[in-house]
């Protein structure tokens, strides 16, 4: 399989990329690691007339702590780089926990955080993590720069707040030093996408939960925070009883995906079981 023909351009800077976008006839798309877009183009689900390769823009490749105390990640940073980063491990380990289980070694070497978020595949692993981490996504486009909360950015299946011509430039994650976190996932055995993925981020003293965020991806058309499950634990002690309560409260009223691999009923069941096990493990020690 190979993609339909397109005009290939290389951008060395963000401004050049945006101007190549604006001068294109027909649909232009930005190419980062290409691990969502190229498969879609091979299946002819995407047929851009111009592909703008932004991978040479070195200024979009970094992980650093900003003046605001948040961890800033350039959009072209690969999953492998995020998984291996000491800065991420210290301030926002949840993001590394998600990055480590994306696809496989080869996919993590090419795929980028910006590309994954821009694609917003329901089975991708970053969406639940960025929702739990309350990350801010910065985009740049023909009309300037916008800072968008993750919850507003991720709109629906393959749909984001990106306007035509906009590029994700930065993902900012507040520091959660001292919080507990985990990301658990039921893998699709071939594609390694999440059939169910649940991200948990908790601020707790021993078993006393002061704050907790629980987010799912894979389960519905778009990743979401499960506030009913969060409320079952917030301000309470995490015990077998309250954990069971949270698991029972999870995924209520959610329009759960169903496909040839996993029925809605199965997904919902796995979603609750995985949440329960993850919470038990998180508060065990």
């Amino acid at each position: 399989m190979f993609p339909a023909s397109f005009d290939y351009r290389v951008a060395e800077s963000i401004d050049e990329a945006i101007s190549l976008y604006q001068s294109a006839d027909g649909e232009a798309r930005y190419l980062a690691g290409g691990h969502s877009l190229i498969p879609a183009m091979k299946l002819r689900l995407a047929r851009p007339s111009r592909l703008i390769d932004i991978r040479p823009i070195e200024q979009l490749r970094y992980i650093r702590v900003g003046d605001d105390g948040a961890v800033h990640i350039g959009s072209l940073t690969t999953h492998a780089e995020i998984a291996a980063s000491n800065v991420v491990a210290q301030h926002a380990p949840l993001l590394a926990q998600a990055a480590k289980v994306i696809g496989d070694v080869q996919v993590r070497n090419m795929g980028t955080i910006g590309g994954s978020l821009a694609h917003n595949d329901p089975g991708a692993d970053y969406p639940a993590a960025v929702l739990a981490l309350e990350a801010t996504i910065t985009v740049q486009g023909p009309n300037g720069t916008r800072h968008i909360a993750a919850t507003d950015f991720l709109k629906d299946m393959y749909e984001t707040a990106l306007e035509p011509g906009e590029i994700i430039v930065d993902v900012a994650v507040p520091s959660y030093s001292g919080w507990k976190s985990t990301y658990v996932k039921f893998f699709h055995p071939a594609s390694r996408y999440a059939v169910v993925g649940v991200a948990i981020l908790a601020n707790a003293v021993g078993n006393q939960v002061q704050d907790i965020r629980i987010a799912y991806n894979g389960v519905a058309s778009c990743a979401f925070r499960d506030t009913a499950a969060e409320n079952a634990l917030k301000g309470k002690a995490a015990t077998d009883a309250t954990i069971a309560e949270a698991a029972n409260a999870a995924l209520n009223g959610v329009d759960v995906l169903s496909d040839h691999f996993a029925s809605a009923e199965f997904r919902k069941h796995i979603g609750r079981v995985y949440l329960k096990r993850a919470l038990q493990e998180l508060f065990a020690g």
């Binding site: 290939y8 290409g34 691990h35 190229i38 390769d53 991978r55 492998a80 080869q106 070497n109 090419m110």
Partner: peptide, 12 residues
């Protein structure tokens, strides 16, 4: 680094 060459364009 190991990559999957079916998911990369030669131009990349």
């Amino acid at each position: 680094k190991a990559v999957k060459s079916c998911t990369l364009l030669a131009v990349q």
